Amino acid sequence: MQSWSFRRKAVTAVAAVFLLGLGGCIAGLAEQPESIERAGIAGTWTGDAGARVELHTDGRFEMSGIPRSAITFSFIDPPPGDGKLSGSGTWEPARDGDKVVSILLHVDAGGSFSANTETQELGVAESGENPVLYFSTSPDEWYGFEIRKIGT
């Protein structure tokens, strides 16, 4: 009898530790952890396979080589292309007090977006010396395709 009680307590303890750890991981994914200073936004950001976003101080941007999967389209027919997107437009910071928590990209018609304009969001994954932004690809998850600032 003692052996069964000990096993049940041990299994319960292991399960509790696992669930607490899993809960912490899920809670960490539930909210965006970072913000960035506006002064740290302008510059060139690059990602895997040649992805590039240039955010200019005048509020304009250009992007190229962005994987189609990184962009969530508001229109039914995605733009033509070989799986990589390009475009340009204007950007603006989305603020929470004095910190920038995301960047809105207002993509003009042209490039891969020949018939429609789009608004995309770049979230802040990491700030500081080596900042990382990401394209928010799903309303159910806060994280997506990463781009890193070069020359900081």
Rank of each mutant, 00 (worst) to 15 (best):
V11P: 01
H56G: 03
G24V: 02
G43T: 00
T46I: 11
F75C: 07
G144T: 04
A30M: 07
I26P: 05
P78M: 10
A10S: 11
G144Y: 02
D98M: 05
W91D: 11
F113G: 12
R68Y: 11
S114E: 15
A94I: 05
R52D: 05
G43M: 01
S88I: 01
I26V: 15
A125E: 03
W142H: 06
A70L: 07
L22T: 09
L20A: 15
V107M: 10
A49G: 03
F113P: 08
S127Q: 09
S86W: 03
R148C: 08
S136N: 12
V14E: 09
P79C: 10
G83V: 06
T44N: 10
V101E: 11
G59H: 05
H56Q: 14
S5E: 15
A39H: 04
G50N: 13
A13K: 12
D48F: 04
K84D: 02
S3G: 04
W91I: 03
P80R: 14
S88M: 12
T152F: 02
G81M: 09
V132G: 02
T90G: 11
F145H: 05
F73I: 00
T90E: 08
A51H: 02
I150W: 08
Q32C: 01
F6I: 14
S127P: 00
N116R: 14
L133E: 03
S114K: 09
G43P: 00
K9M: 06
F145E: 10
A15D: 00
A15M: 12
M1V: 08
A70F: 03
E121Y: 04
R8T: 12
G28F: 13
Q2P: 02
Q2H: 13
N116G: 06
A16R: 04
I76E: 15
D58M: 06
R148N: 15
V101M: 03
G87T: 03
W4Q: 14
S69Y: 08
E146S: 02
E92R: 15
P67I: 06
A10E: 05
Q32E: 08
F145Q: 07
L122I: 02
G28R: 07
F75G: 10
P79F: 12
E37Y: 02
L105P: 04
S5T: 07
P93R: 11
N116H: 15
M1W: 08
T46D: 08
Y143Q: 06
R148F: 05
D58R: 08
D48A: 11
A13E: 10
G47V: 01
S69H: 09
E62G: 09
E121D: 04
A42M: 04
F113D: 13
A15N: 00
G151V: 03
V100Y: 04
A13Q: 12
A39I: 02
W142L: 04
E141Q: 13
G28W: 14
P93W: 03
T57F: 01
I71L: 10
R38C: 01
A49S: 13
L85I: 05
Y134V: 00
W45T: 01
Q120F: 07
E31A: 05
A30N: 07
R148V: 13
L20Y: 07
V100R: 04
T72L: 11
A27I: 00
V101H: 02
M63N: 07
G123A: 07
N116F: 14
L29C: 06
N116M: 13
D77A: 15
R60M: 10
G128N: 06
